[in-house]
């Protein structure tokens, strides 16, 4: 029995089907008897719960450290403002802090010559844990208007079960939140669609995982007969194309009702079983 395997589903472009593939894969893995944990790291808009309907058992806030300055004892040297790369502290006549800009590096505390900077926590969101049938479930919900998602994503990943196959639903894009979601996973599946937009962003995502040195493969969602865009791209870039999921109205209808194609669309049990097997094989390679 496989344990402690982490698979991340990522994409450059949004809306290619990361969540669709993730939740169906999680269900396929649970049905196959694996211990599985679905880990929704798309904390800006987590929506895996809409399909898995988890029972939430535990919920807790995630804080990031932000500086507190004792302005009475501050000697107004400006060293904290100089070291801060994010304009979270600035010195103009007195020291001003902008908590939402702070990345929590602690640099200001280190350079303060009179040690008048302490830390307090600022809440950026919550982690919710529970289970959906046989699937262990964890997701993060970033507070509205909050820009600092990586610490919450890290907390979500830390909350996922050790021994399970962990299916990490990553946010779209190629920047810090995605990197926090895919860092150190065993395999990244880049989900794409066979369109010029999908392809362009797949290229960016591919560059990202290569830079990070993470094993990866591609899955095409909404694949159309005769459309070789992604196939040609994968051949040219020497990336493994693991599977193609057909553009099928029944999958879209299941999605729009919040249902799992794995359970309701005829033939898709086999599609996701096969995909699961190829992924596990690829990750173990």
């Amino acid at each position: 029995m496989i344990s402690g395997l982490t698979i991340a589903l990522a994409s450059g472009k949004g809306g290619t089907g990361k969540t669709t593939v993730s939740v169906n894969l999680a269900s396929a893995a649970a049905a196959a008897g694996y211990e599985v944990c679905y880990v929704d790291c798309d904390v800006e808009e987590p929506n895996g719960h809409l399909f898995l309907n988890p029972c939430i058992r535990r919920s807790y806030p995630v804080n990031v450290p932000v500086p507190v300055i004792d302005t009475e004892k501050c000697i107004a040297c400006g060293a904290c403002g100089e070291i801060c790369q994010y304009s979270a502290i600035v010195y103009v006549k007195s020291v001003l802090t902008f908590e939402k800009m702070c990345h929590g590096c602690g640099g200001c505390q280190l350079v303060c010559p009179v040690a008048v900077i302490t830390e307090k926590g600022r809440e950026i969101g919550v982690v919710e844990e529970g289970e959906a049938g046989q699937i262990a479930f964890v997701h993060g919900k970033l507070n509205v208007g909050e820009a600092m998602s990586p610490p919450l994503i890290k907390a979500v990943r830390a909350a996922s079960q050790e021994n399970a196959i962990r299916i990490v639903d990553a946010p779209p894009g190629t920047s810090c939140p995605v990197i926090a979601a895919v860092k150190d996973v065993d395999l990244v599946i880049l989900v794409t669609e066979p369109t010029p937009f999908g392809l362009n962003d797949l290229g960016l995502a591919l560059d990202m995982v290569k830079e990070l040195g993470i094993p990866h493969a591609v899955v095409v969602n909404r694949s159309e007969p005769g459309n070789n865009l992604v196939r040609d791209f994968c051949k040219q870039r020497e990336v493994k194309l693991l599977a193609e999921i057909a553009d099928d109205r029944r999958v879209a209808e299941a999605y729009s009702r919040g249902q799992l194609a794995f359970l309701v669309a005829p033939g898709y049990q086999a599609v996701f079983d096969d995909l699961l097997n190829s992924i596990v094989k690829e990750a173990r390679r």
């Binding site: 403002g81 994010y86 304009s87 600035v90 010195y91 103009v92 006549k93 902008f98 800009m101 820009a147």
Partner: peptide, 13 residues
Amino acid sequence: AQGAGIQSAEIVS
């Protein structure tokens, strides 16, 4: 990327 207003205020200050 961010903090332009803060930094600009620092410059004029």
